[in-house]
Design a protein around this nucleic acid. Structure first.
Lengths: 352, 352
DNA sequence: CAGACAGCTGAGAGCGCTCTCTCGGTCAGT
DNA sequence: ACTGACCGAGAGAGCGCTCTCAGCTGTCTG
């Protein structure tokens, strides 16, 4: 075995130097070729590429980072203490979108799973340590400290979902990607009106999440001065949807339509409606929100719902972040949030 | 603002050099203190620590990696093409365990999400590029190329679940963490026997996953020469469990117990049993496997099942990997797989 | 009290890469 | 044929850190 000082030897990975020697050029030239090859004449570049190939050269990431100050990695911060964060197909799809887009940008995904608020120190230290070029986070609860903590580290960040700021002021804007929750709410309710429904109820999502609030605002946009008795509170779980439905039927037995703030609650509501012998959509029309396939398509009847492009939102978060990263370092104050609200569409199935 | 050449200035992060100057010692001494402080006298160390504090010094990871060749990062490879990978609470819990243990070891979790077999090149290149100290992967299907690909990169790896090797030979052992699937199967069946059941059926999991096969082996260990007609094939989904149950009832209407290879299939079976008017456990006793809380506890009746410590398995994977990383570079051939099989226990609820 | 031996500390050499700067060569313009 | 412009390639200086090695001080033994 010629595993001695052979630069081709596995184990000792070849360096730029080795490639340069092999190709008979300088280190700088190899570097140029490896990084796109601008300003190197064809034949030389070809020779270098061959040498890279032959030696199986892979650039040393640490060395590169050391000088360029770019790490090629982005942190994805999961700050949900509860267990259902990933079980929630919503998150899975979004993270998947992020993963795909990050790959397209040659960046890695560093997963930061927050273990309760006491863990924020660690997150802050990590972000502040300059290990990643940027951060992606999901805004879950309005009173969450995460946005301001990330902000303080100075690491460029993009949020999934409009953050509700604790004591926020307008200029503390942070770029985020969200879907048009309010418009979606309007879409749903208008559809129910078009169907000729007259007593449209709303099962609201948690009061501390902007998405839920916005959907409720959409409902109220269309139903100006809606009877507050037609709205019941849920928390995005199926069980809460069932509870809310029961409550609504008790308060307003003659309701003929329901707009639930998400599909899971809609499915819970559906169970209660069926139990009470109410037919969907004949007696009560039902519209959900999210179009989470595993839920909306598998209910009986399948759910009419407002679809958002979840994976697309994940991808967009990455693109937004990359835009911030690739532009010149923004002057403090010259904040360009550039948030994006993605359109939603109504998907008609059988429930309304 | 004195934001000029002040080393305390935000923006320009302080270096070891700056801390050394501030504390009036050499770079080497600061380095020693930062890395545990062995061999530095108390008062000096104290002075250094104060300087670190005052300047808000954070070591530059890239520079450190460059010289130590340790990256403080571990890849977690998710190779499931289907969507249910994270939706599966099983995976979520395992990844969570990994995340927690990695944090305890001051390591980061780099998520590598494989986009189909064509994507293995990218994974191999990444691993081969020396960006991570090790890799953790889940062995899902027996015919998956992943194990051999990881192996070829030479990156230390630990698997979750016993890998089924495509054309494997014994010496290609890779350390893995698994639960005692076979023992669990025995546990379940013995419990059913103890209950006095005589015609115990088995709903098997996918034929290309070792966990499913092992559970079936456990079943057959206890029921030597069991009637093959009492076994039906499933694929770990609830729907397949229902299908299998229906099939079994048709073939062997007088069966009085079922051991399903996982909770999801058990819940599917449960629905069919109820539909046919069979009482659980009176007419048919039912045992699942996994003890996935969100499933096993919420069925009616709650499932008796075999519990495995899923998060613990995740943590163990990390510990195993760390053991490999921290020991001296093993000589080629001196493979010390040191796989771990975690014990399982029977959780008695109402279904058996 | 001298000699030896620890125990600390500092100096300096890189880790592998990028990037600026310089220099040599080529080509067009006069 | 000569000058200036320009492009391509190489030399060299670090990026921030670790780690070996030499030197220095202080302590213990003979």
């Amino acid at each position: 075995m010629s595993t001695m000082s052979d630069p081709t030897a596995a184990g000792a990975r070849p360096t730029l130097e080795a490639v340069a020697a092999h190709a008979g050029v300088s280190r700088a030239t190899v570097s140029r070729v490896v990084n796109g090859g601008a300003g190197v004449r064809q034949p030389l570049a070809e020779k270098v590429r061959r040498a890279v190939e032959e030696l199986g050269y892979v650039p040393n990431h640490a060395a590169r980072t050391l000088v360029t100050r770019r790490n090629g990695a982005v942190a994805v911060i999961i700050a949900e203490p509860e267990f259902r964060i990933f079980s929630d197909p919503f998150f899975e799809q979004q993270v998947r979108g992020i993963s795909r887009e990050l790959t397209a940008h040659d960046s890695q995904l560093v997963l930061l799973w927050v273990e309760g608020p006491g863990d924020y120190d660690r997150i802050a230290r990590y972000l502040g340590g300059g290990h990643v070029d940027g951060a992606l986070a999901f805004s879950v609860h309005n009173d969450d400290e995460l946005p301001s903590i990330i902000r303080r580290t100075g690491v460029p960040a993009v949020f999934g979902g409009r953050p509700g700021w604790p004591g926020a002021t307008a200029d503390q804007a942070v770029p985020y990607v969200d879907c048009d929750n309010r418009g979606g709410g309007r879409l749903a309710v208008r559809h129910l009106l078009d169907l000729g429904r007259e007593r449209i109820a709303h099962i609201a999502g948690p009061r501390d999440q902007t998405s839920a609030l916005d959907r409720g605002d959409g409902y109220r946009d269309v139903l100006l001065g809606a009877d507050p008795g037609l709205t019941a509170q849920g928390d995005f779980t199926a069980a809460s949807g069932a509870r809310a439905m029961a409550e609504l039927l008790e308060r307003r037995p003659r309701l003929d339509a329901v707009f639930a703030a998400n599909d899971l609650m809609a499915s819970g509501a559906l169970g209660v409606l069926r139990e009470r012998g109410l037919r969907v959509p004949e007696d009560v029309a039902l519209v959900g929100f999210d179009d989470v396939v595993s839920v909306a398509e598998s209910t009986d009847p399948p759910l009419t719902t407002v679809r958002q492009d979840i994976e697309g939102m994940g991808r967009l978060m990455v693109r937004l972040l990359m835009r911030v990263l690739h532009q010149v370092e923004p002057e403090p104050g010259a904040d360009t949030p550039g948030s994006v609200i993605m359109p939603v569409e109504l998907v008609r199935r059988a429930s309304a």
